[in-house]
Write a protein that binds this DNA or RNA. Sequence first.
RNA 1: CGGGACGUAGCGCAGCUUGGUAGCGCGCAUCGUUCGGGACGAUGAGGUCGCCGGUUCAAAUCCGGCCGUCCCGACCA
Length: 569
Amino acid sequence: MRWSQAFIPTLRDDPADAEAVSHRLLVRAGYIRQLMAGGYSILPLGQRVRAKIMGIIREEIDGIGGQELLLTALHPREIWEKTGRAETMGDILFSVTDSRGGSAILGPTHEEIFTTIATELTSYKQVPQLWYQIQTKFRNEPRAKGGLLRVREFTMKDSYSFDVDTDGLDVQFDRHFAAYQRIFERLGVIAVPVEASSGAMGGTDSIEFMVPSPAGEDDVAHCKACGYAANVERATSTLPAIPDEPGPSVPERFPTPGVKTILDLIEFDGGAPAERQIKTLVYVLDGELTLVLLRGDHDLQEQKLLDGTGTVEARPARPDEIRELLGADAGSLGAVGVIGPRILADDQLADRTNMVTGANLDDHHLRGVDIQRDIEVTGWLDLRAVKVGEACPSCGEALEIFRGIEAGHIFKLGTKFSVALGAMVLDADGAAVPLVMGSYGIGIERNMAAAVEMNHDDDGIVWPVSIAPYEVVITVVKVDDEATMIVADRLYDDLNDAGIDVLLDDRDERPGVKFNDAELIGIPYRITVGPRGLADDIVELSERRSGERTDLPVGEAVEMIKAQVESRK
RNA sequence: CGGGACGUAGCGCAGCUUGGUAGCGCGCAUCGUUCGGGACGAUGAGGUCGCCGGUUCAAAUCCGGCCGUCCCGACCA
């Protein structure tokens, strides 16, 4: 491509409304343009990168036996009602109405539709099957953000595996795990596999691939020593036991005027340190008022509460609901003597004695509370949020927490969808069994953004060779110098013939403008062709990432550049 | 959906407090001089001031409503 003919609208200034690095650079370098919140047009450079990312993913999924299909983005609502997700994913579904008044939804993911196709499988002899597509998804995100990082319409590679048993699923899952690691490596992003919550997807196990970046939206607890990594929605840690002194035989109520918080009670004369307090929260889980108990110095990890109880919708109770349930306002709440509502307690409270908690009477607390003796706990769960520096659950070293972009997510789904939609096969004994499924997703444009988050410097993007829109840019220093232009044109033709993606910057601009643009759009290699070098029969090769420059004899340039590019592909 | 900010030329911004002429930089077009790291001069094109309504002789500016976008929180590739 000749730059003079190309549509590469680079901007001199940073766009005002872009915060994330990838958003700012992709807009400024002319890869994308925003149309609306969470809606981006992909410009020519962006489309080239996107195509390369899809190519890599396709190769790797084909490599583990995937068969590519293409399903519709438009789905009949009834199928989503059969699996119950019309309700559980209701908020993010885009709905459309056709001229006959029928209702359809724009697919946010395709488990339902792939499973519908899988109903044509009839025998265990036909599995395993591994099907995938690269297709547009629509999600009415409550808050689109960060340019391509979180949008409402995007492309996803989603694959689905079908087996007769969980052993088969495990094999497919492991193959995807390995394929995903190869994909991310080839895309030039570091993606840490982490244990994750399956959320609305359901199923048993799931692993997210997290690209560390301040632009990310998830926190990951990670142990450098042993490699343990888990989304904080699931992460655990080992805490030292707290020795309890024996307390009174019954809890004692005492006045605590003005004490509203854990902190207040620490400072209150006759109060208690946070780790000796029981924090009482009130939640509404799918409509049911529930008490949630944690140690005073621990925070609730809401997703754990959802996962642990199988709750779809949770919200903190309103002050009036709390008062009606417990007879006091937040600040004086406790679970002692409460009978009726579900009471869930964090594991860290197990066997604790002589604790302090609210008395369900405003401005009063109880001391000497023995959890087993005094509180009717209906369920024990891991509910607390892990904090930096706590001990790794597998090796005991201090955990760190980093922010990450969820670049891919693989799920063991089990039989939820096959049961709901009747995707059964006969096993070797002639018994009808539901297919055991897995689903495996990776967002194309999000990975483009993640690659930029991970590969940039003050001058712009620094693409890995594997996904760069062009591998080489030839910067012609003086386009109206005939001899220079002849050499540049020949180099351009020869590189094209050698199978290199090359961009010829033949614009009549000053060299500084061209150098800056080349760096901004992030082409891995630049060949500078100008009269000064040609006087000595050389052109200059510079590498974007290192800034390293080498003089190349004109006659050997093509071979040397080709070798260089191939070595980095 | 809750909280905060913003909306003026393709991009980045000023003007609004105290109503009256819409301005700056970049980019764009033409000409000239330049030309190995975002040149200089001259001339020029380009704007429903987000939308609707109100106040007023007069609204980018004051008032009301709406829409849109970004950022922070509850959701996910």
